[in-house]
Computed example of a mutant assay.
Amino acid sequence: MKIKAGFYIGIAVALIVGGSLLVVKGKDAVSQAEMRKQGVLEAEQTTLFYQKSPGSIVEVGVAAGDWVNRGDVLFKVKSAEEGEADVLAVDDGLISRIAVKPGDQVKQGAPMAVLQINNYYTDLYIQESEIQKLKVDQSIGIHFPYLDDPAQATGVVTSISAAPQFANLRMSREKGQADLSMFLVRIAVDSNADLLPGMTAEVRLDEIAD
């Protein structure tokens, strides 16, 4: 009987210890997940507006998907006042959309094309309890965990603003306990040949010193 009782006690102790380890590991996994904030890498875009006298499009020199450099001729426009004039690229980037075609009439302020500039950023939602780790103009590391050879880039926090539409609901509704506020953090990311818009960008808050 003593042997049998000892056997059951041993099993009970093993279950308690094993359960405790699982709880600790589970808490560690949850903590790590909470410390890793992910967003989508985006590219800044700018719209090119027509700034000259009213006229008609004579020539469209680019197509969606073309890479252009600042100063490249994108369109030729003929107007009664200025004759034929060139419309130039205002920056380096990728043409993501063309809004006009030959023969179209354009006037000042008309959109002509959308240019995707090689400036990347990502938006993250950070809990109120963690927002003190981040400050505007702060440099932080950005990870890209799903690349075959995980890359890291440097980012700079450009803005922090309240995001009232995203509240982190508490699991319990104790008296006087409010939901945690969320903050929208925009981070400018250094461009890199391996990075593309749409990739998952990750910030690990546990790497940032308080």
Rank of each mutant, 00 (worst) to 15 (best):
I16A: 15
R70T: 10
D92P: 04
D104C: 03
I57L: 06
S31I: 08
G26P: 10
D148K: 12
E128H: 02
G19S: 02
Q127G: 15
F49N: 14
A151F: 08
S181R: 09
I140F: 04
R204A: 06
A178S: 12
L169A: 02
M1G: 14
A99G: 02
Y146I: 08
M112S: 03
K175S: 09
S172H: 02
E174C: 00
T122S: 15
E81Y: 09
E128C: 01
D72Q: 11
A163W: 00
A110L: 07
I187D: 09
V156A: 04
I142R: 06
D72L: 11
K2D: 10
L195N: 11
S139V: 01
G19Q: 06
A63V: 10
V17Y: 13
L180Y: 08
Q116P: 00
E207L: 12
V156H: 01
S56C: 01
I98V: 15
V100F: 05
M171L: 14
T46P: 04
E130T: 04
V77Y: 01
L115M: 06
T122K: 07
A163N: 12
I187W: 07
L41P: 01
L180H: 05
G19W: 05
Q127Y: 03
F49L: 15
R36E: 14
Q38M: 14
A64P: 02
G198P: 03
G61C: 04
V13Q: 02
Q51S: 14
V30L: 15
I140W: 07
V62C: 04
K135D: 02
V30T: 12
L134D: 12
V87R: 01
A178R: 08
F49S: 11
T46N: 13
S191K: 15
D86L: 10
V40C: 04
G55S: 10
